[in-house]
Amino acid sequence: MNRTRPMLPYMVWMTIFIVVPLFLIVYYAFTSTEFNGVALTLDNFRRVFQPVYMKVLWRSVKLAVVSTAVCLFVGYPAALIMAGNAFSRKNTVIMLFVIPMWMNFLLRTYAWLTLLERSGFVNQFLARIGLPSLNILYTDSAVVLGMVYNFLPFMILPIYSVLSKIDRGVLEAAADLGANKVVTFLRVILPLSLPGVISGITMVFMPALTTFVISRLLGGGQYTLIGNLIEQQFLVVGDWGFGSAISMVMIILILISMAVMSFFEDGEEGRALW
């Protein structure tokens, strides 16, 4: 009996529902049906490079980069603290970071809608302590806030898991050799934690770049982000060719960022792209 046979149904399933659909995207991106029949074309990609759409693309990349940076600068210290000895029940603390992540992300985003309203909780709180009200709902700031809120745990957890594995002996050795805390951090801890930082960045940047829900609920306008543009092309405009072309550009952006990431990572532990 061929012992690999049980995976046959799976192979067939994945070919039909994963591989074929991806080829369909490529097919639609490179063809047009405007004339009688189907013609190969680059028009869809040319359209992506029109200023209007480049603006959307640039904005998506910008917001994703800003959100990733905020997550990194807020999350790294948190991971460092958790890996240290500030908390005695570490597993509980980690659990507390995981739980909100498992709440439906629509509901979490929706919760911010309630908080950020003109007469919402945030503004009531600000008024009570005598600060001017904050009207960031339906702006880019609200979108960044929504992204940070949704993706922060994705940054903290991988960094924490790498930090918590660092051998204490290495830190003691650094101290014995005369390094102060700052030097130890810069020359020992930071380089050793780089793999965690890299997977954290990947895990935040990718969903931030591709989301269309956060921007739709918290942001203003219809064409906020690349994800919204794709959604519109498929569900409203019905221009699959253009939608597919943008999707391909988005995938290429992700592949490039993953390649850049793996370039920064140590060769020894490097994560091959595939």
Binding site: M14, S244, S247, M250
Partner: peptide
Amino acid sequence: IPVLNPEIVTGISLMIL
């Protein structure tokens, strides 16, 4: 592939199919 692919790509590719 489906684990690493952005959800929106999985969504639209299945829709096309």
